[in-house]
Design a protein around this nucleic acid. Structure first.
Lengths: 225, 225
DNA sequence: GTCGGTATGTCGCCCGCACGACAGACTTGC
DNA sequence: GCAAGTCTGTCGTGCGGGCGACATACCGAC
């Protein structure tokens, strides 16, 4: 059920025992979404937590002036919707299928019961939330101090962790994002991202490979040689 | 031990039973800090979680270029240091006593054991972390879409929840912060904050009361009349 | 194939706000 | 008490980057 995603941060399911996971899924309702379908939206009543079993999910908020701020993309094996689980409040964050996606919806009550009975599951949830706190704190700090070019380099560096190292020291990485997606991840405008990408290509920092892949050589790595 | 702070968000200790709290404190080491003493700093080995029993703690990060980004001020009854508890990694966030402060340091092992034995404590920690995720997500969204004036108004609105409502509809609130503190909370420059405060005084949005208090009339409230 | 919708590349304009500078007020320590 | 340090108010100046505009390229549907 959980294909190897090649990702480092499969944060929830892989930490559970087969039987815990089985029990949890037996209480959950599987749902499929096509690319770009909303999974939940700000204002929805929280339906509990969602375990991703296929695809990829974009987590974001819409600001009042219609700007989309992307917090992260969640992959197979990760759990989403924990932020409103306990408080049982309405969703503030939106989730949207980035690809064709399948999730198991675990009702709030079942999730809470389960965490009461298996404290290691509750601890796992604490680990997941703690990681998100740290990454949001880092995003806020970077936003305060770095210009768009540096934020974009940091994003590429982060994505490079998931790519394949090439013999020449560059990294081949999947890049199925539009410039608008990228801009929303680093809170910049589409135009600025486009022009910095052009500049990077001129400088040899990145090179397009087909439509949805990039070769990337971090300037930091270069310096280390 | 836990004086009434008059705050709404005493997020941890008040939710525990007397005996749970007593047990936890019996495993903890109390430490005092004077105003401006560092409680922990980025790079420190995590010493577990800290329960605040007196004073107020500023939580922030330093960016590479020396900018201080403040995430929140924690009050009596709150717990800090959860973000690095499970991963047992080094601190990334810094904590500093804003006033004369006392904290009980709960060692990592004791905290983990306790959460294993008392799942409701683990759930409480989940609630605390979830609230922080939401507030950081909101901060990031606001930063992306609002200008400094609006961010400052939002900050005042948030602080107004803790102030005393006056007969004239304004709110009297403690304001022991320097303009630099405020700037660091909303990621703006000190000068811009100063000039917007001046403008607010001219417009009657705020009025100083002594050195560390403000009368505040939210422009939103006004419109509702 | 054609055509509509979406993505990219690149202008120029201009505005919010960071930053340096400095004067005056207030606060703290000795 | 005075002196040193810190905080506040208010100037310019300058620049990063948002935004509108528009041409081109690409992609998917039929």
């Amino acid at each position: 059920m959980f294909a190897d995603t090649g990702m480092l941060s499969v944060d929830f399911a892989p930490h559970l025992s087969q039987q815990d996971l089985g029990f949890l899924l037996s209480r959950a309702r599987p749902t499929s979404f096509r690319k770009r379908d909303p999974i939940f939206t700000a204002g929805d009543r929280s339906q509990g937590a969602l375990l991703i079993t296929k695809g990829q999910v974009k987590l974001f908020r819409m600001s009042e002036d219609g700007r989309e701020v992307i917090f992260r993309y969640s992959a197979v094996g990760e759990i989403i919707g924990l932020a409103e689980l306990l408080s049982n409040s309405r969703r503030e964050t939106c989730a949207e299928a980035q690809l064709s996606t399948e999730v198991y919806a675990i009702p709030r009550g079942a999730m809470l019961d389960f965490m009461q009975q298996r404290p290691e599951v509750a601890l796992r949830a604490i680990g997941v939330l703690a990681a998100r706190v740290r990454s949001l704190e880092e995003a806020l700090t970077n936003l305060a101090s770095d210009n768009v070019e540096i934020r974009l380099l940091r994003l590429l560096d982060r994505m490079a962790l998931l790519g394949e190292l090439q013999p020449d020291g560059r990294v081949l990485l999947d890049f199925p994002y539009t410039h608008q997606d990228v801009a929303n991840q680093i809170t910049a405008s589409r135009q600025t991202v486009s022009s910095i990408f052009s500049e990077f290509k001129r400088r040899g920092v990145i090179e397009s490979v087909g439509r949805a892949a990039l070769l990337f050589q971090s300037p930091d790595d270069e310096r280390r040689h």
